[in-house]
Design a protein around this nucleic acid. Sequence first.
DNA 1: AAGGATTGTGCAACCGTTTGCGGTAAATTT
DNA 2: AAATTTACCGCAAACGGTTGCACAATCCTT
Lengths: 345, 345
Amino acid sequence: MNEKKKLTLKDIGRELGISVSTVSRALKEHPDIAQETIKLVKDYAESNNYVPNLLAVNFRKNRTFNIGLIVPELVHHFFSTVISGAISEANNQGYNLMVSQSNDILKDEVLASRAMLNSSVDGLLISISNETHEGKHILEFLEKGKPVVQFDKITEKLPTPKVIVDDKDGASAAVKHLIEEGFTKIAHIRGREDVKNASERCEGYKNALKVAGLENHDYWIKTCIKISEQEGYDFTKELMEGENPPNGIFCITDLVALGSMRYLKENGYAIPKEVGIMGFSNWMLSSVVSPRLSSVEQHGFQMGVESTKLLLEMIKKQDVESIQTVELKTELIVRESSRMSNSEM
Amino acid sequence: MNEKKKLTLKDIGRELGISVSTVSRALKEHPDIAQETIKLVKDYAESNNYVPNLLAVNFRKNRTFNIGLIVPELVHHFFSTVISGAISEANNQGYNLMVSQSNDILKDEVLASRAMLNSSVDGLLISISNETHEGKHILEFLEKGKPVVQFDKITEKLPTPKVIVDDKDGASAAVKHLIEEGFTKIAHIRGREDVKNASERCEGYKNALKVAGLENHDYWIKTCIKISEQEGYDFTKELMEGENPPNGIFCITDLVALGSMRYLKENGYAIPKEVGIMGFSNWMLSSVVSPRLSSVEQHGFQMGVESTKLLLEMIKKQDVESIQTVELKTELIVRESSRMSNSEM
DNA sequence: AAGGATTGTGCAACCGTTTGCGGTAAATTT
DNA sequence: AAATTTACCGCAAACGGTTGCACAATCCTT
């Protein structure tokens, strides 16, 4: 009782007494076809609600209308925001989005990309895992003429366009803001050395200090491995118990900042009176913790949109050579955790 | 220089001097084919790394190996967790997952489902929007013989299998826990009346009170519209400023609980000493706020896995009639916000 | 009025695989 | 030795569109 037979071009042709090819052309208003024929066919198709068999079309044209997307982690505020943007733009242009995750494991990333490569996708959006270096599995896409766009976590080794946020600039702005609020001894809890974003943010931190001519010490820089709340807590403890405790901390991420704040609150430090805190990424949680956490918005949605636009452009013009880099600006979000002045009321 | 011509069955046949059909059958070890022929073909295919054109196969077989998934909101801890589970299970079984979101807008949901319906998906996983009631666009899937599985936010009106969590039981357990910890006047900040999950949780709340023989008042039940942090704050204010303030609050969601806690902290109430708080959903943030928030884990990952399993089973046996309901058990996560006793140390 | 240009349509190949059916040669049975 | 079975393999249609090309009919030249 299910699976009613679908209407095909052949059916229409038979019914209307014209050939399949004419029907096909009429439907797409080919100039060769007489207006009245076009109307005839279109009307019939409309009222019998004909829908073309995409499987057949795609097979013939050798493309799907799908694009793939792989992120290290799906359950992650920033990445899910990017995905949201990618879906939006893809759907706008008539494409569907296929999603997978690598869990930051190279093997899983290879598996996921292979699954998508074989004719189920016209192009790929990817934010690579920490373990990805060579990226042979990515090159396979290019070899098959399927464009790839990297976003956020990228590697320069792969000849594809890249969409990233200006981490260095964002970090600089964050630290500059702390300085302007009067914080003079600013520490940084950073991420792994081999992760580009982390290094960029650290660069931005150092630059801001240098420009302002403030003290800077290696012992004010702590390096997270997992970027966890606990690490934020532990490193803040180290910092505050050290000999020259800071009065401001710039954290690689909001989650780490949360840990930092937990330590400070537990130990009676007033935020921001005694210690100012800046996060990064502007996760939803930053606006609901107390004190509300200042952060740096990365415009993940926009990143998803831009990456997808780039990819679809390449798909449409069969271009697989482009390697431009788009750098998105961040936005400083000032909340309570860093505001000494009463600038807003 | 790209798009190297792909090897086809025809190529192999020509090269080996056998017919296309024999090659095809040899590759899948059809009993009609001689062992040596099989070996011959397989070896050739292997060393010239033949990969079948999935587009052609799918067209021929009229299926895609893709499944669709639609959620109200992608940037949402619970839903992204479900998606993560769905991807995991789908990939395990050789399927790709196509993801879309409705933003809780019916029109968007219809658009998304239509985009998937036309031959790009073999079945659908959906958590419906608040605006979805009839669900004609869902029925279209069934009419075409494509199975649908509903999860989390469901409607009984659609004849499909459903995977839900036992909200009532979870809520009951949460409130029961508050009671056991000694809280005697327990309020509830609930979600919209027309959302099933919200009503179930409210039921569970009422039941627990009744079983324990505690007071219950309509004025202890507040109804959120947007389920926001601010609503948690505002309703808690109302509750605490009312004539018979509660000493425990069960919130529909962790986010609301956060708002609740913010009001209490700002106004000098000790948590949990004076007021105990329970959230629901066990978002990541519940473990990083202070005091850490007790909550109810919904096992989103498992929900994604189960839903996908159900769907793939139906796809494989061409079954579109099944309507079983799977109810997942929740898990009480006790943290600081509700613990009066020192039961664990 | 004859030739060429224009307009509209159909034929048939094609995309790569799958599969029902028929056919041949060898092996087995009687 | 004839009849039947078995083991292999190929032909060709089919899936549902797309598209190059040929062709017929009509129109416009001169």
